[in-house]
Amino acid sequence: MKIILDTQKFTVVIERLAHQLIENHGNFKETVVIGIQPRGIFLANRLVPYLEKITKSKIQFGVLDITFYRDDFNTSNELHIPNDTNIDFSIENKKVILVDDVLYTGRTIRSAMDAILDFGRPQKIELVTLVDRRFSRQLPIQADYVGVTVDSMISQKIKVKWQEQVGKDEVILLNKEI
């Protein structure tokens, strides 16, 4: 086990991501934030209040479930139970920021882009991720804002822990038990 981000650094990284977003999106007048279910919501829930505090403006924030858009429905042995999708504003011509915790194969983001396009035609889609597992992409997808980049093997696992869930903010790299 290796600690990638400890509790202290964790907060610094999230605040940096927020400032990078503000740099590009100003007061978020034409921008909406979409958290990807289930684990992207944790990051979005941290980012959005911080962004609102700094920009002193209300940010349109929705959650998106990608279960029905997965590409492994007939090949996966697992049946995925859907989570809620809640986007109660128009994304037409808006800049959409997708938020997820870990960027790995890129397949989730592919599904998320398909799903979001069913809600309208955004002007632009960007991606923010807390952890980027480099060199493991199966699709040509990259994040625009990265918390931390990790080189890892397929057999290893990245675990993002959240204060809200387990009482501690932390990112760790696990070696799969043999």
């Binding site: 029905f68 858009y69 429905f73 007939n74 069913d118 809600f119």
Partner: peptide, 11 residues
């Protein structure tokens, strides 16, 4: 939704 369709069972 405006687009009342998902591609889940497309195959």
């Amino acid at each position: 939704r405006p687009i009342k369709k998902v591609p889940t069972l497309r195959d």
